[in-house]
Design a protein around this nucleic acid. Structure first.
Lengths: 145, 145
DNA sequence: TGTTAACGGTTGATTTTGTAACTAACAACA
DNA sequence: TGTTGTTAGTTACAAAATCAACCGTTAACA
């Protein structure tokens, strides 16, 4: 019983966004997975530390909106694999500062370069104006100002 | 060690798309979960059948790019809950045709209405032109023509 | 036909995520 | 101080996604 109105699944924003997100993350996922055995949560934590420097898990949560259990586990794995270290905060011993190790910074630099290149590849089929509008609209939808 | 170049995580398309997708699907997820106890895979299958009519699991896979095990399990649950039925294909007994039951169609109509309304709400902060460009760009990124 | 490969779909084992309850530390304030 | 509430982060358990192996059926073709 097909419908006869204007609604199409391919045009429903949550669906469309999800398809675009999934498709566009495939190739990058392959890189961080193959080169460093990382999961999505892990490269995200790595990038937060690489971009913004020393942060606590809480800071990362505030910036990324990832759930704290995800962050906790990502940090654990990154620590085990020597991509980051924890430093106690003497002023508030509930939290710890996270810092990338030399190895972590190297991985970050590598993946950062890949990400930059990949981002341009993704944007290639779009005109400059389309790209500008797309990013602005996505930022609105993601409520990131 | 903060970077000093133009790359920002909040602007990396796979990340940005994922944030927007996640944020924008939250409210709709609440509806199909609360009203029908469905998972994302399940409303997707429901919508495919509601929009396009009788399909095989394979058809749904081709249209949605969902993995076949996800579809298999979604179909199983939807059948258990009497939202759809399976009909053998005598010409090829490997596959089965899937049809929504009366109950399945009712759920589809209900959620379809919700989705339509929700889509407009999401698009509200965007101008007509922004919305048009956004959808076109997303379709390109999702490689859906 | 008989054999082999491919296909549609399912199942089971493993990994990853989500949810809730928990620990330890801090804050507020009587 | 001490009691109560909150916060940062972890852990345990359940739910779900992933991956490989599998079954029955169909296709290809010697």
């Amino acid at each position: 019983m097909p419908q006869k109105d204007d609604f199409d699944l391919q045009n429903f924003l949550p669906y469309l966004l999800n398809q675009a997100a999934e498709e566009s993350s495939l190739a990058f996922q392959q890189v961080y997975k193959d080169r460093y055995g990382m999961l999505r949560t892990e490269w995200r934590v790595l990038f937060h530390l690489g971009l913004y420097g020393r942060l606590t898990a809480k800071d990362i949560g505030a910036r990324s909106k990832m759930h704290k259990t995800k962050i906790s586990r990502a940090v654990q794995r990154l620590e085990e694999r020597r991509f980051l270290t924890r430093a106690p905060d003497d002023a508030d011993r509930r939290q710890e500062y996270l810092d990338l190790t030399t190895q972590g910074r190297a991985a970050y630099r590598d993946l950062h370069g890949v990400a930059q290149g990949y981002d341009s590849v993704l944007a290639e089929p779009l005109t400059a104006e389309e790209e500008r509008v797309l990013r602005a609209a996505l930022r609105k939808l993601a409520r990131m100002g």
